[in-house]
C-alpha cells in the first residue's frame, strides 16, 4: 500500500460531474476484505431485508387490527395423511428441503475455494434441484388453498386479509427462490465450463456471492415460517 500524498482542500480537482465521480472512486475503500461483488450483494440483501421486513410488518398490522378471528394456520396448512390430520406437514418438509439446499450451497462455496470444479458444480446443481423442489411444493400448496376458496380478498375461515398476506409474502419469497434457481444454474454452468479456473472470467468468489443470495432466501423463510405459519 503506497501512501498517496495527502490532498489539501485547496488543491484543485477535476471540475463538474467528473470531479464527483473522481472523488467517489478515489482510494477510499470501506470494506477492506470484501470485494465490490460481495459488498454489493450484501447491500442488495440489506435492501431486500427491508422489503420482506415491510411485508411482515404489513401482515402483523392486518392481523392485529382485524376484529374477525385469524384463520388458524396450523389447521389451514394441515395435510390429510393416512386418515389423520398432520398440522403444517408440507410446510415442515419445505423447511427441511430449503435448509438442505442451504447446506449443499455452503459446501459448494467451500469446494469452490478448494478449486474442486466438478464437486462445486454438482453441489450447485443439487442446490438448484432442491430449490426447484421447494417451489414445486409451494405450487402444490397454492393450488390446494385456491381450490379451497382462499382468495386475496377472502377465505372460508376468517379474517379476509389472510389470503392477501399469504399470497403476497409467500409469492415474493417463491419468486426469490425461482430467481435463485436460475442464478444457480447459470453460475453452476460457468463453474462446470471452467470459467473460474483461469481467473480471466471471474473467480470462485462468484460462487460465494451466489451463496449469499441463496442463504438469504433460506433466511427469509426462517422468518416467514415463524411469523406466518407458527404464530
Amino acid at each position: 500500500m503506497t501512501h498517496a500524498p495527502s490532498h489539501s482542500p485547496a488543491q484543485p480537482r477535476t471540475p463538474g460531474l467528473r470531479g464527483v465521480v473522481a472523488d467517489w472512486s478515489s482510494d477510499q475503500r470501506a470494506f477492506k476484505s470484501a470485494s465490490w461483488r460481495k459488498a454489493m450483494m450484501w447491500i442488495f440483501l440489506l435492501s431486500d431485508t427491508f422489503v420482506f421486513g415491510t411485508f411482515l410488518i404489513g401482515y402483523m398490522t392486518a392481523r392485529m387490527s382485524t376484529v374477525t378471528p385469524w384463520p388458524n394456520p396450523s389447521e389451514v396448512f394441515a395435510l390429510h395423511v393416512g386418515g389423520q390430520e398432520l398440522p403444517l406437514l408440507l410446510i415442515a418438509i419445505m423447511t427441511f428441503v430449503l435448509i438442505s439446499s442451504s447446506g449443499t450451497m455452503a459446501l459448494a462455496v467451500n469446494f469452490g475455494y478448494r478449486r474442486d470444479r466438478r464437486t462445486t458444480a454438482r453441489l450447485m446443481f443439487l442446490t438448484a434441484l432442491l430449490g426447484a423442489t421447494f417451489v414445486g411444493m409451494q405450487v402444490f400448496e397454492w393450488s390446494k388453498l385456491i381450490s379451497e376458496g382462499v382468495r386475496p380478498w377472502g377465505n372460508p375461515w376468517g379474517a379476509q386479509q389472510f389470503g392477501a398476506s399469504f399470497f403476497m409474502i409467500t409469492g415474493f419469497h417463491g419468486a426469490h427462490v425461482s430467481i435463485g434457481v436460475a442464478f444457480l444454474v447459470a453460475i453452476g454452468w460457468k463453474v462446470m465450463r471452467g470459467d473460474y479456473e483461469t481467473g480471466g472470467r471471474g473467480s470462485y468468489e462468484n460462487v460465494e456471492v451466489m451463496g449469499l443470495y441463496w442463504h438469504f432466501v433460506d433466511l427469509v423463510w426462517v422468518f416467514i415460517f415463524a411469523f406466518f405459519y407458527l404464530w
Binding site: A30, F31, A34, W42, S102, M105, A106, H215, L219
Partner: peptide, 23 residues
C-alpha cells in the same frame, strides 16, 4: 445462517455493522 453459512463471523466488523445494524 448469517454467521456461518454467510461467513459474517469472519468478515470485518465494518461490513458486519453496515449490514446488521440498519435492520
Amino acid at each position: 445462517i448469517v454467521a456461518v453459512f454467510m461467513h459474517m463471523a469472519w468478515e470485518r466488523l465494518a461490513l458486519a455493522y453496515a449490514v446488521l445494524l440498519p435492520p
